Amino acid sequence: MTSPVLVYDGDCGFCTRSVQFIERHVPSTAEIVAYQFADLPALGVSEEQAAHEVVWIAADERTYGGAQAVAMLLIDAGGAWRVLGAIGRLPPFRWVAHGLYRLIANNRYRLPGGTPACALPADQRPTNRTRPRS
């Protein structure tokens, strides 16, 4: 890989709105792709992980999930974003970021932009029921 990849849940309206914000305001070098359209085995990411949390795959193929994936995205963006991301990697901020990420991820269907599909297990979402398995 030559550039990092950020994988998110494209079935989730809240996640999609968050990615739209990132694409407009956070100058990352990452390719941003919904896991439903990503070659997960080539990225070294399971479908279960991708459905559970956002995943950052660095150019050196190391992976980071959840709040740490967001921190890596911010570090990659540089400037003030880099400082915020670096702080998010340090204890105790790392622990707080993880707790906040899980709170948001577990309740994303209740948040603005969320959809009922966000509340369903990944294998029961409409997109996954019709998507062929590779």
Rank of each mutant, 00 (worst) to 15 (best):
H52I: 01
N107E: 00
V70L: 14
Q36V: 10
V54N: 03
Q20C: 00
H25K: 11
N106P: 02
Y64H: 15
R131V: 10
L74Q: 08
S28Q: 13
R17Y: 01
G13P: 04
R133W: 10
G88N: 09
C15E: 02
A71Y: 08
A122E: 06
C118D: 01
A67R: 11
R125P: 09
N128R: 15
S28F: 11
G88D: 09
G99H: 14
Q36N: 00
T127W: 09
Y109T: 07
A59F: 08
M72F: 10
L6P: 06
P4I: 07
A105G: 00
H25M: 05
L111D: 01
F21I: 12
T63Q: 13
R110V: 05
R110A: 01
H25R: 14
L6N: 06
L6Y: 09
R131F: 11
V54S: 05
L6K: 11
A80K: 14
F93P: 01
W81M: 03
A30K: 13
R17V: 03
G44E: 07
L100A: 13
V45F: 09
G44D: 06
W56G: 02
P112H: 10
Q49V: 03
V7S: 06
L103E: 02
T16W: 02
V70T: 14
L111K: 08
V5T: 15
L120D: 04
E31T: 15
T29Q: 15
Q36K: 12
L111P: 04
R129L: 14
R17A: 11
S18Y: 05
G113I: 12
G113N: 09
F14P: 05
V45L: 03
G10V: 06
D11K: 08
E61R: 15
R108I: 08
T115A: 00
L40F: 06
F21N: 03
W56C: 01
D9P: 06
A42K: 14
R108W: 05
L84E: 02
F21T: 11
R125Y: 08
R131I: 10
P27L: 11
V96E: 03
